[in-house]
Write a protein that binds this DNA or RNA. Sequence first.
DNA 1: CCAATCGTTCCGAGATACAGAACGGACATA
DNA 2: TATGTCCGTTCTGTATCTCGGAACGATTGG
Lengths: 253, 253
Amino acid sequence: MGNHAKHPVKTTMKTLELIDTLKELESARVSELADHVEMGKSAVHNHLSTLEEYEYVTKSEEEYSLGLRFLDLGGHVRNRMKLYKVAEPEIESLATETSELVNLAVEDHGHCVYLYRSKGTQAVKLDTYSGLRTAMHNTALGKSMLAHLPEYRVEKILDEPLTAETSNSITDPEEIRTQLAEIRERGYALDNEERLEGLRCVAAPIQNSDESVIGAISVSGPTSRMKGERLENEIPELVSSAANVIQLNITHS
Amino acid sequence: MGNHAKHPVKTTMKTLELIDTLKELESARVSELADHVEMGKSAVHNHLSTLEEYEYVTKSEEEYSLGLRFLDLGGHVRNRMKLYKVAEPEIESLATETSELVNLAVEDHGHCVYLYRSKGTQAVKLDTYSGLRTAMHNTALGKSMLAHLPEYRVEKILDEPLTAETSNSITDPEEIRTQLAEIRERGYALDNEERLEGLRCVAAPIQNSDESVIGAISVSGPTSRMKGERLENEIPELVSSAANVIQLNITHS
DNA sequence: CCAATCGTTCCGAGATACAGAACGGACATA
DNA sequence: TATGTCCGTTCTGTATCTCGGAACGATTGG
């Protein structure tokens, strides 16, 4: 679905591109933005002041940046998701049990999107935030979902060039496919420092009654603690069982 | 500041109104939206498919709803805030100490906006989510910030009709002003079931070196636990001291 | 089987977005 | 103080785009 709108609203596209640019630049002045987007100063000014009126951007002193309205809408979107409501308490208790960082993610447009996280008492400090989008192929969360996506979707995702984040990242589609088979076999996925040096994760998918994936949960921790018996049995056991509980609660309501 | 853009981009306004409506309706079909906003079906369709292309809305089966892109942007906005970074660990440990629900909020355009929350082991389950906007006058968070806002801002906020959420809500501007003086006096604010029956909160403001408010933190709990010595001394003590730590860390960096 | 309602496509006239010029303020340099 | 530069903002005309309304095929229900 290379989803191209047949009759796009070009003005809206310009606004959205302005928002994207503002996200990248963190904050910027009118002229700066006008250079990045292909628009004149006056046009950028008009767009920004319209966005400001609706609180989508904030003007602080002399620079514009994205406003808190996005946090509002984002929270609203997450709150509406059944998966989030059902999974949240389980995530919470999994974090307490393991003392590590626990994550909830969904697949969206071929990306792995973090929905929620809960930090156990020893949790590593990561850059992951709710809403963050990462590639599917180098996170345990992504791979666990990929393993249960319909073939045509997997193909489309693995056809894109696979980026490497660390020296352990897997960039060969065939190797990923082998892993996906293993994941289906044993029920959970591993990330062995593929996204971040020193970080290992264990993830299990959450499936619907019709076998389709609706999300995944994971436990992330430093290599020093994620090894041996704990990595091979204890954590996978806890993650799988939590995923199972969520799955049951989702399909029975 | 009734911030009216001088030369608004009307097309963008229509898009934003569509987003607002989509938030209200939770999810809706093309014709349904066309009725709510004053636009024809074709125009709504064009806007929606443009938004969908950028992942701002999702089309599920036969209804449109807001997409996860907002979560991404919202998380990004929050992550950029120094207050959030500095306050987060303090909020976390305050939640552990009190076992209750702890909140971080800022003031934005005359509203109280929740930025983050951490749940202690006994935390009440509330509808508050990151990004939620509430009135300033019937939350402890809001009042603690209001108490340190410049007079012209206070006036503008209290000039608007004050809504009541419960039978304890205060809707008389003069009574609020008396409370604000008390809050300045003792350093923290109380919400005695003013926003929600059965819920009491204690909040303390976080101020900049120039005395301006940059946010507030609060502890919320059920009336059954928030009373007597704990409500009058223990909790206020903990909240104020956490706010103080945050304040120091903010101004020294 | 027809009637109603849906989403989508198409088109042209009326609306409007926007480049570019012009302006005024802020700041630096001389 | 005078002069130059860069900023954000306002203004205006026209080339462009938006959007109502009509038309169409697909669904649904009576």
